[in-house]
Design a protein around this nucleic acid. Structure first.
Lengths: 342, 342
DNA sequence: GTGAAAGCGCTAACAC
DNA sequence: GTGTTAGCGCTTTCAC
């Protein structure tokens, strides 16, 4: 056994290479490659000998080398806020299914709503030369992506727009959804309506707030101080905001919750109080039907699927101008949004 | 511009390489490598020139080449049943956090409970030479992994044991948890208790059923035909099973639901009926507190974290015998499990 | 402090 | 049908 062979058995913890398989089968390297990749031009007999050598040695093609040579990794990156959030599970799964249909794997990362971490993750994925990138942005400046996009990494932004960079986007109609939800409460007699949302640097949070303001204005209602609260979606923060709005001499009679996490805490706070409080939440929630929670629903799986399909269309060569898709939301009345003012 | 240079600008859609950076900065290739990897032995002045060239060209290191040379991908694979299932979101996120702390990325795949798809995914990950693998198995024969493990891919099985292959495992105490839950119902006066679980080829399903049987036996109760139903967790299937158990002259007075999806459907079925039916479910569910659902809770994040920590301990060189960790479950009484028989 | 040369394991191009 | 050679873009080794 010569030096080269010993060497190749050292890397990757002793994995045999095509060269080793070729030696064992008594064929050339390229023939092994042909067999491994099911290319034509190998006689059944040679093929059998190669397969035997593969099985005997426990060979598996090293895709790192393949990728280096081919220039395509057959993988896409998905950067989102938090894989543990029930909104992102179905979204990721939908992306994964589309990727799978295109023979690609999914590399997944959570930004934890931290712009630096988002950038770190995205650039790490670029260094790995993912073929494409789906990003639910945490930050609002994505100029750092420009060289990567120019270099050919297809990119789609989801749920929130990209900052200072021209890419495809798939968004939900946050403004329209919130506006409809708040109008729904107004139609059921409410005028004193509170809005609790996510941090103001998050685009969907301010869009939903804008929907609230427009619905209120359209009804001729002046929004009072203390009816609006944006901030972290930590239960403690949301609870404090809700309790404040529901206390005092002139409490709100209804709440609009800006996302699934806010809704969950709002439901808990309301359940503890004697006087009924109407509620409409943005995003659907598991078991919300049984609890009778009225929501503005967005189809997370559809968002993910749409984004991934756009991405692969780009990878397949589509080079039209960047598009901005906005998916509609649906109001699902289940009781909590139809309660009259107390 | 010679042929080589044109060539290197063709791959990966025109990305500059270290060679291009070196040429532009007027230094050797290795010096660029030193700068990119923050290795010592470069004067501040050379470093600056290299940095300028990097910025000007929009260079980003190609990790495919790095990986090929170094033999480590700094990535781990996670194969689970369904990313969209609320049980796996927190688990994945926990794995991701541990990976991140070790500088690794996460490649994620759903088996959709299909053994073939599991194997396909796992082997694709092996071909990419992930450093480690966390698998929530769909199948029950994992001999196909033997060459990969022997070749050095650290592997941890989670939630369900591996078949015919010696690896680390992190499991929840399905048997103990189910036994406790069923005993709880018995303690509250039930004797006619139904069990609805997942498909019998899934280990946790049969373990939970075993817990049910042992609890019943310990209480001297003979399980009657029609009290047990294993199968798909599709709502239709679960609904039919539940309705059958709750009908007829001698219906069950309580249900034990084998996992989160079964519980959700069981809650819906029970809510439609007049007579109250007691319920204990395996796995906690969002908002279960508000609905008063008694559950056997397992900490999905803890399961993921434990598995990932085991994995990285192996990658850091731990070579003790394979371990089998079993994490405890917790009974959380919230009302539905404490209802007396109707 | 810096750089030239070899080679990681594969595929593309081309010869036989 | 099959094999040989070059090279993907990096890191390693070693010479200067």
């Amino acid at each position: 056994m010569d030096r080269t062979a010993r060497h190749s058995e050292t890397r990757y913890g002793n994995r045999p290479t095509m060269k080793d398989v070729a030696a064992r089968a008594g064929v050339g390297l390229k023939t092994v490659s042909r067999v491994v990749n099911s290319e034509p031009g190998v006689t059944p007999d040679t093929e059998r000998r190669v397969q035997e050598a593969i099985a005997a040695l426990g060979f598996r093609r090293n895709d790192s080398a393949r990728v280096l040579r081919k220039g395509r990794t057959a993988s896409i990156g998905l950067v989102l806020e938090d894989l543990a959030d029930p909104f992102y599970g179905p979204l990721s799964r939908a992306v994964e299914e589309v990727a799978r249909a295109h023979g690609a794997l999914l590399i997944n990362g959570s930004s934890a709503e931290d712009p630096e971490r988002e950038q770190e993750l995205v650039l790490a994925l670029c260094a790995r030369r993912v073929d494409g990138l789906i990003v639910i942005p945490a930050g609002d400046d994505h100029r750092y992506l420009e060289p990567e996009i120019k270099a050919g990494i297809a990119t789609v932004f989801v749920d929130r727009p990209a900052g200072h960079v021209d890419v495809d986007m798939v968004l939900s109609d946050s403004f329209g959804g919130a506006r409809e939800g708040v109008a729904h409460l107004i139609a059921h007699g409410h005028r004193r309506i509170g809005f609790i949302g996510d941090q103001p640097r998050i685009h969907t949070a301010t869009e939903r707030l804008r929907g609230y303001h427009v619905a209120m204005r359209d009804a001729g209602i002046t929004v009072e101080d203390g009816w609006v609260s944006l901030g972290s979606t930590e239960p403690e923060r949301v609870r404090a905001a809700a309790e404040e709005m529901l206390s005092g001499p002139e409490p709100v009679t209804a709440l609009f919750a800006g996302n699934n996490r806010v809704t969950v805490t709002a439901v808990r706070v309301i359940a503890e109080r004697e006087r009924p409080v109407a509620l409409v939440g943005f995003d659907d929630i598991e078991l919300a039907d049984l609890l009778g929670i009225t929501v503005i629903s967005q189809d997370a799986a559809a968002v993910g699927r749409t984004a991934a399909e756009h991405l692969f269309r780009r990878l397949d060569g589509a080079d039209h101008a960047t598009a901005r898709v906005e998916l509609p939301t649906t109001l699902i009345p289940r009781g909590s949004g139809e309660l009259p003012p107390a």
